[in-house]
Amino acid sequence: MQNHYDVIVIGGGAAGLTAGIYLSRAKVNTLILNEGAVGGQMVLTHEIANYPGIESISGYELARNMKSQAQKFGCTIKSNLKITELDLNSETKKVTVNNKDVYTAHAVIIATGGKSRTIGAPGEDEFKGKGISYCATCDGDFFQDKEIIVVGGGNSALEEAVSLTKYASKVTIVHQFDHFQAFEHYVEEAKKNPKINFIMESKIIEFTGDEKLTGVKIQHQQTKEITAMDIDGVFIFIGYVPNTEKLEGIVELNDWKEILVDKNLATNIPGVFAAGDSIAKRYRQVTTAVADGTIAALSAAEFVNNIKKELLLAQAN
């Protein structure tokens, strides 16, 4: 088995797959190592209608196309594995995975993306799929004529709350602040929907039920008053957190655990680049991830080519 590559890309979402496409097309020997299913957060998007040049495509199809495009250029993709060890500070970068295989490369691109933030309240794990959902398009129809809660105050929460009124008899939006972060038109649309009402400045502190979810306990953030509420379902849309736990103490991160990069998407470690939702930036879209993947790939390719030139010069001398 070949274990040494020019570049290892960690993460197989939009940024990682784009890096794989660019690098492999430039004949840079590239391996993508991916912990989950290929496609990352892109797969969670039911319809992408603003990807330039494509009027409408599902996130799954776009991911599948990107994967196949990368593989056609010769990129090796290994998915559904767990990275157990990272040695990025040495000249030869080393990545160890759960079956003890070790992969090495001259350069690494970190494109680990993000994951849905969870509330972390008691009962959340227990009732996942039994009343608690993170996907309105997947599970909305289980709540026909039922009363549900949507947690969150961003674009996703407000947009999905409105879409869930197709099924639910009543949707209560629970948000921790006294105002929404969502764009005004999403807020307006939710406010004018007669099935939607709001509980502001409040957080769910416990999920209750037996075989499935039947209620929640909600605490007001100012008064600390706790209210029990009977409910059939809870949809959680409270944003994303970067997948950077394994990078703490290795790569420089900011207070939000996002990777700090320069304009070439280089991190503080020579030969280590980062791209996509895990880096410090404001806008997280498929298109921005694709752009990041391109920049990181070109930067990494340049870095690898320089190393190879130096090696050739050293051999010649």
């Binding site: 989950g36 496609g39 797969v43 039911h46 998915s79 996907c135 398009t137 997947c138 599970d139």
Partner: peptide
């Protein structure tokens, strides 16, 4: 063919 199902199919295929 939704976002919660596709990763499970992929794992099964592997």
């Amino acid at each position: 063919m939704g976002p919660m199902c596709i990763p499970v199919y992929e794992s099964m295929e592997e």
